[in-house]
Structure formats: C-alpha cells, structure tokens
C-alpha cells in the first residue's frame, strides 16, 4: 500500500482502478458525453471508458468546452471515480465545481506532484479522499 497526497482542486472521494492517460486529451471532441469513452481515433487510449475509473491525466489540451463535457458526465452519473492531474487545469475543474453548485455530486480532482504522478500506473486500485490517494 502506498499513500500519496495531492493538492485538492475539487474536494470529493472515489475509488477505482487507474486509467492512465499520458497523451494530451481534450474532453470536448475527445470524450463522448453520452458514453464517457475516448472517441478521438488519433488518441492512444481510443475507446477506453472513463466511467468509474481513477483517471490519471498527464495533460489536457484544446477546447474550453471540456468543462461542459465533464459536467455532463457527472450529471449522467457516468463520470470518473476521481481525476488526478499532473498540472492544474481550471477548465476541467470548473466542470466539477459547477456540478457541486448544481447539486449533481462531488468529483474529487487533485493535482499530483510529478514524482507521485509517475506512481499512478495503469490498472492499480486507488482510493481518493480529500487530498489523499491510497494505492493498493
């Protein structure tokens, strides 16, 4: 068991297996808001489903509508269990902040240090609560 701690962008808790996304991803135009799958055929994780996963996201890119796609995933109850970022992304965080304001629920979003981010390997089980990430 490994315990890590990150900077809390949006408070929440969630448990799931890690889906590691190293290649830059745009939620808008890259993730289907109806299925939570990565739809960009040029993306190495094409067709992976984000629902219930602890998504370790190295880099966001592109659209400023990514917040809307994340809000829709939360509203439709097909959101990731938690999102762990390597860099703060205000656009994505906003989707989770609006979800909280609208009463749709809390999605944990943390910014991890580079060293800790490297420990987030594909398929490992992770429990996220507040600023803490516990890897089994």
């Amino acid at each position: 068991m490994t315990a890590l701690s990150g900077e809390m962008l949006v408070a929440g808790k969630g448990t799931g297996t890690i889906l590691r996304v190293d290649h830059a991803l745009s939620f808008w135009g890259g993730v289907d808001p109806k299925t939570a799958r990565i739809t960009d055929p040029r993306h190495p994780r094409h067709n992976e489903c984000l629902t219930g996963r602890v998504v370790a996201l190295a880099e966001l890119r592109g659209s400023s509508s990514s917040s809307a796609v994340l809000l829709e995933l939360i509203h439709a109850k097909i959101a990731p269990a938690a999102i762990l970022l390597r860099d703060t992304d205000a656009i994505l965080a906003l989707g989770a902040l609006v979800a909280r304001e609208m009463g749709y629920g809390d999605l944990a979003m943390l910014k991890m240090s580079r060293d800790d981010f490297a420990l987030l390997v594909e398929g490992r089980h992770a429990h996220v609560e507040g600023p803490r990430v516990v890897l089994d």
């Binding site: 109806k34 509508s65 809000l71 439709a76 979800a99």
Partner: peptide, 17 residues
C-alpha cells in the same frame, strides 16, 4: 461566452438556473 453550445442537458439546466 462559449457555454451556449448544447453538449447535454446539464448545460441547459445551468443556464436556465
């Protein structure tokens, strides 16, 4: 404002709120 493009019902509910 770019938020006026429909991506799902949640965005409509937000604007209507």
């Amino acid at each position: 404002v770019d938020g006026c493009l429909y991506h799902g019902d949640s965005g409509t509910h937000f604007a209507e709120r």
